[in-house]
Design a binder for these strands. Structure first.
Lengths: 344, 344
DNA sequence: CGCGTTTACGTCGTTCGTAACGATA
DNA sequence: TATCGTTACGAACGACGTAAACGCG
């Protein structure tokens, strides 16, 4: 049993049982993998794969079990390598962020930029994914740092670190009658108009849908999209009223009007989620510190090491977060940090 | 980085930084280890050990970190090997039980015998240890199955499986005045006489001591010993009144008289504790099933796999356990299964 | 001088890539 | 016939053990 043999095993499993493809992924030749797997099977004393003719059709049951432990083993090998790279002061590497489009587009840029400024040789890979896939991917032992948001509940995969709180806004074209509204809008009023929101609102467990359900009101989803820019575009086109994250509206959207969402829509929290027990590279920690400056560095280290799950501090609201980093000077003083007029 | 290099690393750490000794433990030569470690250090890019002259004086801080992950990695390698051995139907292996003397002497024999009967080629290693060491040893990643008892609290290392409940008994020589007592004995009465009990009773957090403390009564510990046989011997010698586990009194102790301990002494639970996430060999599971027949096999498998911590069933009392396996015939019918007369 | 580590050297086993072969759809 | 896995061969590397040298107490 070798590290390489196990590496090949998971590579094959992750390549849909295509040895040739797996060989490319691990930068080796196909006969090499084929032989090593055969050898591993010999040593273990049973088949890892079921074969039909000469091609692999599936993992055996025992193979599935071995795979689980092989993954953990290789994770630890990766941890040691990460540890070593940190120790050496290695400044290059790869950082994969798996997150939703909204986070990637409106939340991460500043933090990512700051991290890259400090670690110019690090290649940062942004992998936008569906909300639902992200946790599944992380649970399967993906080697990524996930940034996700929930309405309240703590994500139950890995170590979840609360970054900030945010609310939704109701976005209407400036010409819309609601753009002249001064008092807050109710869920009942929203129920009467067609809505444009995130794709995830279609799922029955989405917090938007649940809010309508709880109030016994119907929800008219005119259309949904994965990203906020599309939603805004279609709001402009007059397809309906946008419901989206407050982070997604900015100065560039002066032709739109944002109202706070009804109180019935719960506040959301954005979390960083990392696989439990994974050693992070320096630059990943750097990014986390940028995203969650309110968190004690020692707590962070302990949580990442997997030894303790501290009681995290209450995360700040998004607007606070926006004010926090720079000088609280002109921009906030004018109250036009976000140039949209909005109700307080 | 090789499995062997990591194996050597932990072997050296576990041999007090003596490479020669470590080499024997891993069945290799000393220069081999020396070179491999050097090579590993080269690959990682920093020293794992601090050296004074030519000998190792300590692990570096980074080395400590690497060691942690190396242990986990090798654990997973062991898991794969165990998995494979089970899969192959391998019937030989080693089973190390780390436990207290009382469990080893009075509780385990039947279960161990049953296991050996089914797996004659398995070498079972009984490692009696101090109560306090056991959990520490397990937490450090020892590869043993621990059998320990607590007064109520769930042990917080690894997966704890409740086996059975038991109480203490007060043991007096037949000639003692208390041997003619028919009503139950109180803590206050015990406080007036010299006691002979387990070594662990000396510790301030022992449940015996805490019971006396809670009642505001002094405790006279005439002497303590590690094992029940010694305690009985000294009770016979008239040194004092024995306080010990009910499991430890048997037919052979007909010259002694056992009374139930005061209600103020809490009931105890004996647990099997195993490192979280370790794959057990068939025969270890067999032993567990023998020790805890009340536990659902599926629950057991799930818990051992580390995926879920089921709500364990209330463990049976020790006497029930004694009646359970065989025919409830002559022996229990006569009421002399334990030949000591005892109050109900 | 003994103990423990390092260095030197030679051998053996293993891994890996190239190339040819085989089977399958 | 294209695709994918297996087998064959040869070269290169690496690990390991033996033996000798080196430092330190």
């Amino acid at each position: 049993m070798t590290l390489n043999q196990l590496r090949y095993l998971v590579a094959i499993a992750d390549s849909g049982l295509n040895i040739t493809l797996a060989a490319e992924h691990v930068h080796a030749t196909q006969p090499g993998l084929s032989r090593q797997i055969k050898q591993l099977e010999g040593e273990l004393g049973f088949l890892l794969f079921t074969r039909k003719g000469r091609s692999l059709t599936s993992l055996t049951q025992a193979g599935e079990h071995v795979l689980v432990h092989a993954r953990r083993l290789l994770d630890e090998a990766g941890n040691i390598r990460a540890l070593a790279a940190n120790q050496r002061g290695e400044r290059k590497g790869r950082l994969t962020l798996i997150t939703t489009h909204t986070q990637a587009r409106y939340v991460l840029p500043r933090a990512v930029a700051a991290t890259r400024r400090e670690y110019p040789a690090v290649s940062i890979r942004l992998q936008p994914s569906e909300e639902s896939e992200i946790l599944a991917h992380l649970a399967r032992g993906g080697d990524e740092l996930a940034i996700i948001s929930t309405s309240g509940a703590v994500p139950d995969a890995g170590v979840a670190i609360p970054l900030f709180r945010w609310r939704r806004v109701v976005l209407v074209p400036s010409a819309h009658r609601l753009a002249r509204r001064t008092r807050s809008i109710s869920l009942r009023e929203l129920s009467a108009v067609p809505l444009v929101s995130y794709e995830s609102s279609r799922r029955p467990e989405s917090s938007l849908r649940r809010a309508f359900d709880a109030a016994g009101l119907p929800m008219q989803l005119a259309m949904t999209a994965h990203d906020a820019d599309l939603i805004k575009t279609y709001v402009r086109a007059g397809l309906g009223i946008g419901i989206l994250a407050e982070m997604a509206v900015s100065a560039a959207d002066a032709d739109l009007y944002a109202l706070p969402a009804p109180g019935a829509l719960p506040e959301c929290i954005t979390w960083a989620v990392l696989p439990r027990g994974r050693v992070l590279r320096d630059f990943a920690l750097r990014l986390l510190r940028e995203l969650a400056p309110q968190i004690d560095a020692a707590d962070l280290h302990r949580a990442v090491a997997g030894n303790a799950e501290p009681a995290w501090p209450e995360p700040p609201a998004w607007v606070d977060l926006q004010r926090e980093p720079a000088q609280p000077s002109v921009r906030t003083a004018t109250g036009r940090r976000k140039s949209l007029q909005r109700h307080q």
